[in-house]
Amino acid sequence: MTPVQPGSEPDIVDLIRKEGAVDYEVGLESLNQWQLAWRRFRKHRLALVGLGILIFFIAVAIVGPVFMPFEFDVIPSPDKIVYQGRPPSLQHPFGETGGLQRDVLLLVINGARTSLFIGFSSMFIGVVVGTVVGSVAGYFGGLVDNVLMRIVDVMLSLPLLFVILVASRFFGNGNVVLIIIIFGLFSWMTISRLTRSLFLSIRELEFVQAARAVGLSDRRIIFRHILPNAMSPIIVSASLLIAANIIAEAFVSFLGFGVNPIYPTWGNILSNALTFIPLGNWWWPAFPGLAIIFTVLAVNFIGDGLRDALDPRSKE
């Protein structure tokens, strides 16, 4: 309504910049949404710490066994009979187990490999199955949706831990791949529910209607148009699934129904620790357990960070 005052424009730009809204406005040219997410993620200090811990464990899992080879099929010959194991020392910083007298550090390092592998790959199976089921149910609706969601209901009504335990015992045979598949096949339900609800809302949006009007195939609409927009919450849930699966694997293996002890995992290392309680072998269960705790903590922190970074609207 009146001439522009000098100085007014910069103030407004300044305001936007200070408000942080500029990330969207100015950033559009230079940053894509993943770069923006990484910016927000970096502000989450605990998430960065978590990422550091996780990367460290992954590095240990990959590189560790190369530098510290461990022969599983060879029972180490004890230099003298130390049935109750040995507490942490300079040579064996995590101590040695009772019985077979294994080095706990080597067990933990080798356990990292199997445990993380199981955690990540079963998460991957769970996410793929869950996303596909949820997408199909949410996109097509009707009878397909009904049938799939009833299956989800039944699966969620199962006492899952119990069923996983039984399935691992009956089918797993100590085989890592089978265990991964079992965990994957019992962990997709929440993801599928989430995906379905996201699809239900996204498929009504204009750009999907437009894609349909242009005559794109269902598969293309699902994978190119809807799924990318539903990705953020799915990624957040997936990160938390890793933690859940690592704990569940440890639980099943600890009970002796999981992975064959010749492939150490953080769970099955502990199986025999209980019998050595009277001998006070605290270092035997302590370190593998701490490895689990730190990994799960790290993954949960990352999950929190991802939630803040990818899904800024959702709160605690």
């Binding site: 007014s8 305001l15 408000e19």
Partner: peptide, 27 residues
């Protein structure tokens, strides 16, 4: 419709002088 140009100043960075000056037609 007549509108007041601009927005409320950034609370962290109030303008020097009159707060309304950046939006004021008579400043």
């Amino acid at each position: 419709l007549n509108v007041i140009k601009g927005t409320v100043p950034n609370p962290f960075n109030m303008p020097e002088g009159c707060n309304f000056a950046p939006r004021c037609p008579y400043a």
